[in-house]
Simulated scan of single mutants.
Amino acid sequence: MRGLISSYYLFAFDRPFIADVLRAELPQIRFLLEGSGRIAYGGEDFVAMPFASLAGPSVMAIRFEARGPFRLLGVGLLPAGWSALIGESADRMTDRLTDLEGLAPAGVRRAFLQMHEARSERQLIAAADAFFLLLSMNALPPPLWFTRTTDAWLSDNPNPDVNALIAELGMSARQVERLMLRHYGSRPKLLARKYRTLQAAVRLGLNPNSGWQAAAGGAFYDQSHFIRDFKLFVGMTPGQFVAKGSPWLTRLTIAKRTGSAAMPKITRVS
């Protein structure tokens, strides 16, 4: 499953309420084990999270609110994983949240109950493993020849060039766009904008005093262009992102101290 799933993560807190902004993401499967939560894409209305949800790929920042005590197991789906395990064209689910039980009714409720009853992280992960192994029994063969090339194009370049991807794949622009919509949920130019902005956000967070030009890395026309895309994909201005006490800056500072900070890769943008 390592080529289909980016990571498992457990998010828990005991506070009565929290609100946050999530950057544009890979698709997510989430099991809400305790508490309640809701999300909103961009300026849209909030949608309540069911006990098991599927969030399609996002091309805008997401507002998140939750009431605790709260506990959630989340799973990031890679593009190959979306194609194999979900099968639905990704562009139909972009910036949308849906009930996972409608897609895999046989295993979802059982997996949720096993996770809810788990008394250790080991048991929790075992329940998640069992669910995804069950889901994989009906998996479709993913187009790895396409996703591996596209993943490398997105993660290895500070400013991904669509024409370079088209040339490397040896296909027409229309063919590449059709495949990108199906497996990544958006057109190549928008996807390139998303990844270069997320990479710029990491550079800015790791070196907040270096200025926007250093963070932009020559991938943006001017400061207004940088701010506009930053607000779209990160959910705030660069100034808000690096303001004193900003949770984003705090997270990146901790990651830098522990040596775990890195440019966003397709396997970790989740």
Results as ranks from 00 to 15, higher is better:
142 P>Y: 14
98 T>E: 14
121 E>G: 14
62 I>P: 00
171 M>G: 02
217 G>R: 02
176 V>W: 10
119 R>C: 07
32 L>N: 06
238 P>A: 06
101 E>S: 14
63 R>Q: 05
97 L>N: 03
197 T>E: 00
241 F>H: 15
177 E>N: 05
153 W>Q: 12
223 Q>V: 04
42 G>F: 15
22 L>Q: 11
227 I>H: 14
230 F>M: 11
210 S>Y: 12
165 L>Q: 00
268 R>Y: 12
170 G>F: 09
77 L>C: 06
130 A>T: 02
43 G>Q: 02
13 F>G: 08
99 D>A: 15
141 P>F: 09
8 Y>N: 01
136 S>F: 08
225 H>W: 09
193 R>P: 00
154 L>C: 11
241 F>T: 08
157 N>Q: 07
50 P>E: 03
158 P>V: 00
188 P>G: 02
231 K>M: 13
59 V>E: 05
217 G>M: 10
61 A>K: 01
48 A>N: 01
214 A>T: 08
145 W>R: 09
239 G>T: 07
235 G>F: 06
207 N>H: 12
179 L>A: 10
220 F>V: 09
31 F>C: 06
58 S>W: 01
181 L>N: 03
133 L>S: 05
60 M>V: 05
105 P>F: 07
176 V>D: 12
57 P>K: 05
168 E>S: 04
204 L>W: 04
224 S>K: 01
129 D>T: 12
122 R>M: 11
166 I>H: 02
223 Q>K: 09
78 L>F: 03
186 S>A: 09
28 Q>V: 10
184 Y>E: 03
56 G>W: 00
130 A>F: 03
94 T>M: 12
269 V>C: 13
196 R>Y: 08
92 R>L: 05
59 V>K: 03
10 L>V: 11
194 K>R: 10
142 P>G: 13
160 P>R: 00
223 Q>E: 15
126 A>M: 11
256 K>V: 12
135 L>W: 05
268 R>N: 15
89 S>A: 02
20 D>Y: 09
43 G>I: 02
73 L>V: 07
43 G>D: 03
266 I>M: 13
132 F>S: 13
103 L>V: 03
115 M>E: 13
35 G>F: 02
141 P>R: 07
189 K>C: 03
106 A>M: 12
80 A>Y: 08
258 T>D: 15
232 L>F: 07
66 A>L: 00
248 W>L: 14
32 L>V: 08
107 G>L: 09
9 Y>I: 03
9 Y>E: 08
262 A>Y: 10
70 F>C: 01
4 L>G: 02
254 I>E: 13
115 M>L: 12
164 A>P: 05
224 S>A: 09
179 L>P: 00
178 R>T: 14
152 A>V: 04
63 R>M: 07
269 V>A: 09
225 H>F: 04
207 N>L: 00
